[in-house]
Structure formats: structure tokens, C-alpha cells
């Protein structure tokens, strides 16, 4: 499944300072839907190069990291349970850097 992932607010520093990543992520199992929960662990394994604790805490994003799916706050779409579809755009922004 083709997805566009964007890292901002300083999170890009954790993935080689690249802000936008066009990626191909498959659901955990055949016939299953791709959820944010799975995407997060995929990102952590495949994109985050350093200090993963800046991005995640437990199985979700670290408090203070905002997540938008297709420009919509993931708190409106079920957070970890949000189901992703082909060509979705997911944005991660840290609020923890500088004023």
C-alpha cells in the first residue's frame, strides 16, 4: 500500500533529516487492514534512525507528537485503530521543540 509520510517539528531529524517519505507498507497479514498501530511499528523499524524514544512511547507516539491522517487529527479517526487506505498521507509533528 502506497503511503506518504511526513515528519515535521524536528522529528525529521530522527530519520536522516528527510521530511517526506513515500513508502510501501503492507498490512500485518493477508486480508487484514493496515492500521496506524501497525504503521507506527513499521516506521519505528524502517524509518527512525536514532532516538526512537523521541517518537514513540509504548506502542503509540510519544505525548506531544501530533498525528494527522489526510490532514485530519488522528484523535478524530480512532488514533491507533485508524484504518489506512491506499495513497493516504500521514503527518507526524513534534510539538516538543523550541518556542
Amino acid at each position: 500500500m502506497q503511503l506518504t509520510l511526513e515528519f515535521g517539528g524536528g522529528l525529521e531529524l530522527l530519520c536522516d533529516s528527510v521530511k517526506i517519505h513515500n513508502v510501501n507498507v503492507e498490512p500485518q497479514a493477508e486480508g487484514k487492514k493496515l492500521t496506524m498501530k501497525h504503521l507506527l511499528s513499521w516506521v519505528r523499524t524502517n524509518l527512525i534512525k536514532e532516538r526512537p524514544e523521541m517518537f514513540m512511547k509504548g506502542d503509540t507516539v510519544r505525548p506531544g507528537v501530533l498525528v494527522l491522517v489526510n490532514d485530519c487529527d488522528w484523535e478524530l479517526s480512532g488514533q491507533l485503530e485508524t484504518v489506512l487506505e491506499e495513497k493516504d498521507a500521514v503527518v507526524f509533528i513534534s510539538t516538543l521543540h523550541g518556542g
Binding site: 515535521g8 517539528g9 524536528g10 531529524l13 506531544g64 501530533l66 494527522l68 490532514d71 487529527d73 503527518v91 509533528i93 513534534s94 510539538t95 521543540h97 523550541g98
Partner: peptide, 19 residues
């Protein structure tokens, strides 16, 4: 802070965020 960052993001404001 969440709203400030959302506002900046939606409005595409130009800000710097490096530690």
C-alpha cells in the same frame, strides 16, 4: 501548544524546529 502547532501546520507558516 497543540493548537499552535496545528494552526502553524494548516496555515503552512514558516517556522524553525531544531533543537
Amino acid at each position: 501548544e497543540k493548537e499552535i502547532v496545528m494552526y502553524a501546520y494548516f496555515k503552512r507558516l514558516d517556522y524553525f524546529s531544531t533543537e
